[in-house]
Design a protein around this nucleic acid. Structure first.
Lengths: 177, 177
DNA sequence: TCGATCTATATCGGTCCTATATAGGTTCGA
DNA sequence: TCGAACCTATATAGGACCGATATAGATCGA
């Protein structure tokens, strides 16, 4: 899903500045499976404006950059719906941790344990974040997605806790090398 | 994990051409959580060669481009180990499907069902792929990673099958709008 | 009061992916 | 047996995206 489409989607929920859009990824329930950086959001909003899919109004502020508040236009809304009717790109899950585990046999056991610990605590944090922000008052989709995230994170934690020994225990033969 | 590091890692398992490296992502157990395209693999291998982390030998072939077989050098091997001792970048899981589900209320129910069906069958295929390629003969890390993938995919399928009704059933009030 | 963090926009450099070009070989069904 | 589809094999151009950085004052807590 390209950044322009993501911005359009968020703007269907209400007006926002580029800054606020970015904050939604960090604070709110869009977590972890949908994201974009400032470096792509600002150009995306500029281009959406040129294309007529959003409109801007500048709110001047004293001693601070203008707040540029974006609103989706009717054309933007139909464009957005249209993009959801096209086949979706596939998920892309890239995990440096998983990559590193493939080479556990090249590393000291303590490093492997450290990686597993760090990864577990990252996932725990993401899970805690999802649980804090309950989505009870939000659209049905948000609750569904929140549950999806929980299911994935819980599965990862379960797997790591019950299988980490397999990767942390070096076979005698290998340890002798 | 950048593409250069990924290439180095794969070359610790044995010599390979750029083409073969790419095939490993598709066929073998590196699946789904580690990937790179031709467009980044070829330049990465060129640069690794310049840096002395890999060496090349060209095997001329009749009526076909030369096979350029890459081998990791001792410097490449230590560079690779060193990169695994540094803190790992976080996972990045981007899901257009999850994004679309956030806006299920803007779409016809049939489209939502279609998306869920398509997504489930994608995940089923990935799971089947993992199960076909058993990693019994491979390093411990490969088995661990394979199990990790299975755990994630099974959790996703379970969640979708038991919760899809929540997103497919439109409330009477909303349907009336 | 001083540093850290927050609001707020924007660009630059680099990384990576998608699509394409090239070019012949193999495989398999009609 | 002929052609379509797919496989081996490398490479580049264009575009999308991210991370770091620049700017600049406000606010807040120790």
């Amino acid at each position: 899903m390209d950044v322009r489409t993501i911005c359009l989607g968020i703007l269907t929920r209400g007006d926002a500045t580029g800054y606020e859009i970015k904050k939604l990824f960090e604070d709110d329930g869009y977590q972890h499976f949908v994201e974009a950086s400032f470096g792509s959001i600002y150009p995306a909003l500029q281009r959406l404006t040129e294309e007529g899919y959003v409109s801007v109004r500048s709110e001047a502020q004293e001693k601070r950059p203008d707040r540029k508040v974006y609103s989706i236009t009717p054309q933007g809304r139909s464009q957005f719906i249209a993009s959801l009717l096209k086949p979706l790109p596939e998920d892309r899950h890239r995990s440096p941790f998983v990559f590193a585990m493939l080479f556990a046999d090249l590393l000291p056991q303590s490093r492997v344990s450290g990686m597993v610990d760090a990864y577990i605590s990252q996932v725990e944090q993401k899970l805690a974040h999802l649980n804090q922000h309950d989505s009870a008052s939000k659209p049905e989709g948000d609750k569904f997605v929140s549950g999806f995230g929980r299911a994935v994170y819980v599965a990862i934690l379960d797997y790591l806790r019950s299988h980490r020994a397999e990767i942390e225990t070096r076979l005698a033969a290998e340890a002798a090398e």
